[in-house]
Computed example of a mutant assay.
Amino acid sequence: MVNYYSADIVITVSSTPLKQGVVAVNDEGVIEGVYDSHSVPDGVTVKRLAGVLIPGFVNTHCHLELSHMLGKIPQHTGLPTFLSNVMRDRNHTEKDMVSAMKKADEMMFKNGIQAVGDHVNSVISAPIKEKSKIIYHTFVEIIGVNNTQLQEKIDHARDLEFHFDANHSSITPHAPYSCTKLMFKAFKKAISEDNIISIHNQESDEENKLFRYKTGDFLTFYAEQGIDMSGFKAQARNSLQSYLPYLPTNNRIILVHNTFTSLKDLDFINRMNKKVVLCLCPKANLYIENTLPKIPVFEQDNRDITIGTDSLASNDTLDMLEELKTIHTHYPNIDFNSSIRWATLNGAKALGLESRLGSIEVGKAPGLVLLKNMNQLRLTKNVQVERIV
């Protein structure tokens, strides 16, 4: 059976928005037709929807296994203190963790999220992902703050990866402050070109202070964790410029957060000629550092931008619409159509899912999401999301 849905505006993402457009979807969620108001087949029943119809969201960054930490960590602590709190409080009973993950997974699907890029340090989320209506690409994090057992840490990540969908998983360095230069070099040698990389980048200015001058709150964090940093040398440049040369050239690289990424950093990315995507997690940035990335600068630099929610340790919901509202509240001049592309097709491309998701095109199964209470194409606090397909 084919169902026909019409909305005030249909944003296909891949082409011009359609006023009173109509989308035909079969029972498997596959798009069978996209029509303007004058080309709808005769004799079909069209369900009229009030609002803007878009493809399902792609959440490029999350930590599902931290879902039990909702409301447990204070806001505006700064990243090093936030990390200390996560490490101290993340362990909980398996029953509670699984229950919280199931609720988070259901919340994301209800909120119109069709795919998620999810970071893990364990296999606890694997059964939930296997049964989920959401497509997950799982990033297994590698942490190596010293130069011992480099290959063992990579092998351990491979062992964890085995428990997730082989077509939608990869290993990745966690962050520049949690991996040494030798770890980045070992990682580069260990992976193939189809291994998607997703790394936390410049989420805090303390990260740049560490790499530039070997000063700041990260030194206190390392001391509290009993980590010897005597061998670390100041690089006299930001963290991004210190580690990006050691990542492979041909792999897709998602840089997550970018809260303190500068114009010089963007220029450095351009000169590196790597396949870099910038993922924004605005609500988490405000939760932890109480500031946002220079999003208009990223846009003007023609960067490929995606959007993520981060985890419930640093957010009060997993809702891409709320992330979009945050962006448009702080940067009202950003084009709505551009930001929808960041939240859909760009995310699908970043996760290697663009042939299936991210845009309303015949043959894809992107999900359909209705944005209600829209004022033309202006996003206000009154807009609500409803999953249609």
Rank of each mutant, 00 (worst) to 15 (best):
K103G: 00
D301C: 01
I128A: 06
K233E: 15
T380N: 14
N258Q: 13
I307P: 01
W342K: 02
S198C: 01
V58F: 14
H63N: 04
V46R: 08
E28T: 13
S230C: 08
D165Y: 09
L70F: 10
M87K: 09
I253G: 03
Y35W: 12
T329L: 05
D27Q: 14
V10I: 11
L368Q: 08
P55S: 08
Q151A: 13
K189E: 13
R90H: 12
E141N: 14
V362C: 02
A236V: 00
V34F: 05
G363L: 06
E152Y: 02
D267Y: 10
I334G: 00
S169A: 08
H61V: 07
E28C: 11
R90N: 09
P245L: 06
S339W: 03
K349A: 02
I340N: 00
N146W: 12
L219P: 06
S359F: 10
V140S: 11
D159N: 15
T81C: 03
M374N: 05
C281M: 14
R356L: 12
P248W: 04
A126V: 10
H68M: 10
N26M: 09
A166Q: 15
P74H: 11
M374E: 09
N333T: 01
G112Q: 00
E354V: 03
N111K: 15
D217M: 13
P293L: 12
T309Y: 11
S314F: 11
A175L: 01
P366A: 12
L312K: 00
V40Y: 05
S204C: 03
A126M: 01
L79Q: 09
G21K: 04
I307R: 03
E289R: 02
